[in-house]
Amino acid sequence: MKDEKFQIKLNVQIGESLDNLKTETYSVDVDKKMVVLDAVHELQATQLPELAVRWNCKAGKCGSCSAEVNGKPKLMCMSKLSDYNLKEPISIRPMKTFPLIKDLVTDVSWNYEVNKRIKPYNHPNSSEYITMQQIDVDRVQEFRKCIECFLCQNVCHILRDHDLKDKFVGPRFLLRLASLNMHPLDTENRLGDIKDEFGLGYCNITKCCTEVCPEIIPITDEAIIPLKERVVDEFYDPIKWFLRKLFPKK
């Protein structure tokens, strides 16, 4: 069965520095079942060989092809053309929050630096095999679905507009911290760092991270808010504080 070919227009932001940024319109031959990344590849192969675009698996598993399609943060490989109004040009721009390298590619290395600051998982010392029940790891596993596309980091206004990268680690790493903090076996105490060093309090739970997550992880409701509640337990709850003073843990 043949897919019908037709032409669409792409508005692509081209350039590598503020002085030479421009948005050009290109006509590209596509078929209806294609995704936005296919259209970008077609453009690259036939008209614009030097167009910089980062991608790997084209199956929504690696999280490389993050961009802003019609202003919304998306994985280009999971954005079907048929979901767009193809009579209008589709606008494709790089992620705004990270420094631009060229065209659709940004420098996301800050995220890797943040990960280095997070203490790794600490397994209890034991010569025996320690079991874990499925109901104890369900939550952690959901968080570990993250493919590090950094769309949540890109959309988070604290990083995007307020540029507080030195004070706030962003949703991706709050998710990572939640997966460690809620791990049934991790022996590290992390709440103090989560509150102060990693800046949990900066999040005002406006939930854009959850809206853009291609893995549909409920970042806000299941990771960030529960972390906030755990921080309240430890730091903002006078009754709990009083109880702890009264019955100190041995």
Binding site: L18, G71, P99, I101
Partner: peptide, 15 residues
């Protein structure tokens, strides 16, 4: 490396 400039209500959404 340069960050793109920020403008009030800046966006490229078409909805």
């Amino acid at each position: 490396l340069e960050l793109v400039e920020h403008k009030r209500f800046e966006n490229s959404r078409n909805d």
